[in-house]
Design a protein around this nucleic acid. Sequence first.
DNA 1: GTTTACGCATCCCCG
DNA 2: ATGCGTAAAC
Length: 703
Amino acid sequence: MGRRVDYARELNPAQLEAVRTLFGPILVIAGAGSGKTRTLVYRVARLVEEGVPPERILLLTFTRKAAREMLRRAAMVLDASCERVAGGTFHSLAHQMLRKYGHLIGYGPNFTVLDRGDAEDAINLLRSALGLSEKGRRFPKKDTLLALFSKAVNQGRTLEEILEREYPHFLEHLPEIERLFGEYQRYKREHQLMDYDDLLLNWYRVLLEHRWVREEMARRFEFIMVDEYQDTNRLQAEIVRLMAEGHGNVMVVGDDSQSIYAFRGANFRNILEFPKLFPGARIIKLEENYRSTQPILDLANAVIARAREKYTKCLFTRRKGGRKPVLYRARDEADQSRFVAERILELREEGVPLSEIAVLFRAAFHSFDLELELAKRDIPFVKYGGLKLIEAAHIKDVVAHLRIVLNPYDLLSWHRVLLLLEGVGPRTAEKIIAHLRTAPDPVEVLRQFPARPSYEKGLLRLAEILKEIRELSSVEERLARLIDYYQPLLERVYHDDYPKRERDLESLLTLSHKYRDLSDFLADLALEPPESSVAGLEPETEDEEHLVLSTIHSAKGLEWHTVFVISLSEGRFPSAYAVRDEEDLEEERRLFYVAVTRARENLFLCHPVTGYVPGEGRVILKPSRFLEELSPELYEPFREVPEETREEVSPREGVLRPGDVVWHPRFGEGEVRDVLGEEKVRVYFLGHGEKTLHLRFARLERL
DNA sequence: GTTTACGCATCCCCG
DNA sequence: ATGCGTAAAC
């Protein structure tokens, strides 16, 4: 068995209490950087050390990557058996369970998971079928409809309630919207499709309606832990309650101040209501911060102090010193990009690895300008958030074929696949599908369909490839064969830019390599979409140093030595969509809080004072209200050194000697203390202390 | 009657 | 860069 772990030495008293309390419901309120992950990791280790079989522990996290990471750490603390702990997201667990128990509610094991785009396509199809898309009507669009349906499911409200509260202007269409909702539900059921919400809802139903399943669950998972509980919703809370009915051993961990997923139905009041749902719950607060310097925490505390509703807590640290956050007022976006790039190069001179720096922003497109600047300067980066690989049209095309192989009644995928054929439009596709839906072998129907000469060949080729793929077994082989077939279609449909898209197909093929089961591959693509590969200078190998660009949402739970938050202008952050509704605005504030608490040592806040707004052209942007609210002592403005005073000291020409006085763009005046070989010097700067600088990167001027 | 090409507006965050 | 509506082409 594992080695003894000295919990008392590794953890502070509050963390220790959370780790040592094994039975009953527990709510851990964990401030940013308070060692939340550490606490979960040690608790897993503790449970296993106490003799609980690892497979009887369930760890629900926000992403599957987070679960894997935690279990890896637990394995390092105790022993490898910790990796056998069941871990994943609510959705991945639901998927897994529904493949096993779905027959109880009329689903086979090979149902198809619809991602957002698929769900929207389905709604659009039904909307036209019901004649609700004639022009001139102000009927909601597919994305609004899906959001509406999703909120109803996740919040357990009626469509009418949702409309009244959030979309009163669509109330007149209530009967049609309800009808469409019913049609959508029926359509999915009939064709073995589930969207993200169905995964949760159906799993909940199975649990609710079948006591024996609940009992089996309670036996299978004796201890349940839920991370990021502030971002769960009512339905997820109910699922946890039912799964834990037999024993009540549930620990949830979260921070109400970091709840940023309300748009997805999450409700931070969930965490406030946990004690009601689980009577007798023990509440433990983690308030000591181990991540950031005090000046950063001061700013973070000031941001969240203005939040209206929260568990009161105040972050503190025992760390001494640290620089105040820096505020940079940029002329425009280009100036902001230049500023960020220059600071990054300086940090690299100081020896901060690129991988310890992140640039965060509200929306994925806020970094477009910066991405160009970084590419120009050869600074490698990866971008998280924004478009996913699976959302690209050409990837969806290929995936649709694979889905058909697995679930021949996935009419949505048939629709997409048929439209790719030359000479086939929506009308013909519908006709073919009408023949398919009742047939015992849909692929055979393709051959017999009375096709017009213009697309007959295409249809036959499709039938052939589907049959061929059905008979292959390796996922990679199937995909490779499919890509061969798809190539000419790709060139025809996306003739403008197909070479770019070919590379995405390559990435998909690489991804498929590790899968032995097609249905696992497809489920993972939907449940854990890989990031887009088209983003700029993606490093070839994982260990190559690179900077992180990320939306704040995707940066949840992560930390860096230096963090830049950019585009802090009204209308961007807070988003223009959020400023009218007070609840939305509160969420924006929490989002800003999440952003600033990612930083350990340095925090840079940037806002461009002019910007381009589509339709309006170049406009003056006001600084974000979140910046205006901050008292000026909490940060210091960045002072730029005038261009003309710069004169580079290159390693060849300028032989520096100890005692020389130099000028550095960020640290100002300094005195050379030591010359370390040809390229490095040690310089003492007033107010910043001693720095080792690489002359190859540093722009030093001798005074 | 259908399909396709083209020009138009629009774009937040996500399992 | 996708998603829509309209007009030209099959």
